[in-house]
Design a protein around this nucleic acid. Structure first.
Lengths: 344, 344
DNA sequence: CGATTCGATGTTTACGTAAACATTGATTAT
DNA sequence: ATAATCAATGTTTACGTAAACATCGAATCG
């Protein structure tokens, strides 16, 4: 609660319907009709009201409207680190999809994925009433941690909440599998994996896909290189790879890590893709302009965002929980220059 | 307005204070006191009320609160393309700063920077009442285009609104100047500039800084390479540079463009920094991991976001327009490996 | 031409909350 | 012991809006 709440006593009280009504010489109900575009208002009256609105700088008080309607026209979004590429793209897509449906969005950014922070975020949102909630990759949180207001429609993207709430996510497993199969198909004996953090669902799925592709081809999975999505962690994985002459192919959990890995490889004088092939995940805008241009698995963030909103609105409108929906958005391997056959 | 507004008639009406009061056997005012943490409630009573709240899954209706208080506890944010690095970092910082002050944020993402879209966004926000508005790099919009609700506190970051509203921005001119001076200091005869779009304020300021540094050193400014912030446009500028053997140093309007430029240079077989030195602007997380690691001008997005919110809250609390404030946040040159003395 | 219909508008009311004021009962000061 | 004080709680009211209902007058119909 803002401390200045009491400073609401500011002089320039916003004009209300009553003020407009007085100026236009009509009842406030007529102003309401004009405001909502209802019928049964004579054009001349409407004009008079509109004019009064303009002169007073009137705009409807959404709090009063929300109170009356019982709905807010607001969708809450909980994101983990908004400025990360994957998050911001998804958030952007959700915001846009919501806007198209006439909803406004409220974003809560959870700085650290600690349970306390996320709980606090959820509390903030339930106070700050919303009609529905989109949880984006709240990776380290379990449903039990969050005391969500009962009856609040929720959808999740790639998180542990899958199974508890309707979910939409990219086809992580398949994406990872295709990345690995692509490298194998190029002739690499096996594929290393620079993975995401332990507590991340999508990271685990990508590991699963990587491992299963390797097993499917009868290859042995080399030890995992554990990272945390950041380019820095990719860089460290890269230093390790650079020191392992037998490593010829690496699948990175995301493009940022791939960038860091490329950095380490260049620094160590290892040629890409000549000596080491690299494949990323996400297809961030910069992937195409890394050196060499990164072969990666493209996620359709816009589609995910759109579907999240769609699923949420379906719950809102039909007023039923929609159990056990888990939509999987297909994924694309985009081949560029960072993966090639191994040189023998 | 969401079409499902009428579907507010959902059965599971949220519990109100009255419901909690009835269950706890107290008056709703006592519930209110517990809810707001007011004094004069016996601990035993408080516990009884809290218990009733928990059992009913009560959470206060913020619409009613907002109506009562006359304030919303909400700050609106208008951003242009949320997923661009600069934007998302600033937006994230604003969201976090607002959260720290107890405010919630509503983000409107303007897809195209056309005036119609921005006006629509502003209209959406004024309807969707907010206590204040942060406009982030609404580059192609002029104040006249926006019919903002009179009396609504506004702050802007890097935009044409500077002069009309309190503003916070990085020290663009100085940043550009230092980048150019760094290159000149390294021994380059002159510095090319891959610029941002014509309609962008910050882009123009960076051009000004570039030009003034060149003039200050008595060098001639080569023709401008016009871009649009995207890596793609940097790539195109890079092809042009690659074809000009006399070009030995390029200052890019942002890091994305620098990445594209590096890409084009590598592709053309031009060595960086051996043959061409490159400096960027922003210091995005990936800048350090480009190849070669990018020398660039760091903007302190967090500081900008914090100050924006601070300035907005000052207006909110003091209830005065705060004319002609324009805070400039200093900028840092971070030297990495993409700029070096020219080889002769 | 009187009855009917309906368009245009006004009046009443409720949404959930919390400030302001009112009431009660117990404790403290004289 | 009695008045004064105050903590604990209840009652009334207003915030701005829009649905529901009410009213009025004009146009339409038989």
């Amino acid at each position: 609660m803002p401390d200045n709440a009491s400073s609401a006593r500011r002089a320039k009280a916003k004009p209300s319907m009553g003020d407009v009504a007085a100026l236009a010489g009509v009842s406030s109900q007529t102003v309401s009709r004009v405001s909502t575009g209802a019928e049964h208002v004579r054009p001349s009256t409407r004009d008079r009201v509109l004019d009064a609105m303009r002169r007073l700088g009137y705009s409807p008080n959404s709090a009063a409207r929300a109170l009356k309607y019982g709905a807010f026209g607001v969708i809450g979004i909980i994101a983990h680190q908004l400025s990360r590429t994957g998050e911001s793209r998804t958030v952007e897509a959700v915001i846009e999809a919501a806007q198209d449906e006439g909803y406004t969005t409220t974003v809560v950014d959870v700085v650290t994925p600690m349970s306390t922070d996320v709980s606090e975020a959820a509390a903030r949102l339930s106070h700050q009433s919303i009609d529905g909630l989109v949880i984006i990759r709240a990776e380290t949180v379990t449903p039990a941690m969050l005391s969500l207001p009962p009856g609040l429609p929720v959808v999740v993207s790639d998180s542990r909440f899958v199974g508890h709430h309707p979910a939409v996510g990219a086809d992580q497993v398949n994406g990872a599998r295709r990345a690995v199969e692509h490298l194998l198909g190029l002739g690499h004996r096996t594929v290393h994996h620079a993975a995401g953090p332990v507590d991340s669902g999508p990271a685990q799925l990508r590991i699963d896909g990587w491992r299963s592709a390797l097993e499917g081809a009868g290859r042995e999975a080399p030890p995992l290189l554990r990272g945390d999505w950041t380019a820095r962690s990719g860089y460290e994985a890269g230093r390790s790879i650079a020191g392992s002459p037998e490593a010829t192919a690496v699948f990175c959990a995301n493009d940022e890590m791939a960038a860091g890995l490329l950095h380490a490889l260049h620094e160590a004088g290892r040629r890409v893709p000549g000596e080491v092939s690299v494949v990323g995940f996400d297809d961030i805008p910069l992937a195409e302009h890394l050196w060499p241009p990164l072969t990666t698995v493209r996620q359709d963030f816009t589609e995910i965002g759109t579907r999240l909103v769609e699923l949420l609105l379906r719950q809102l409108r039909e007023d039923k929980p929609l159990q056990d929906v888990h939509e999987v958005v297909p994924v694309d391997l985009v081949q560029r220059a960072s993966a090639a056959p191994p040189m023998d």
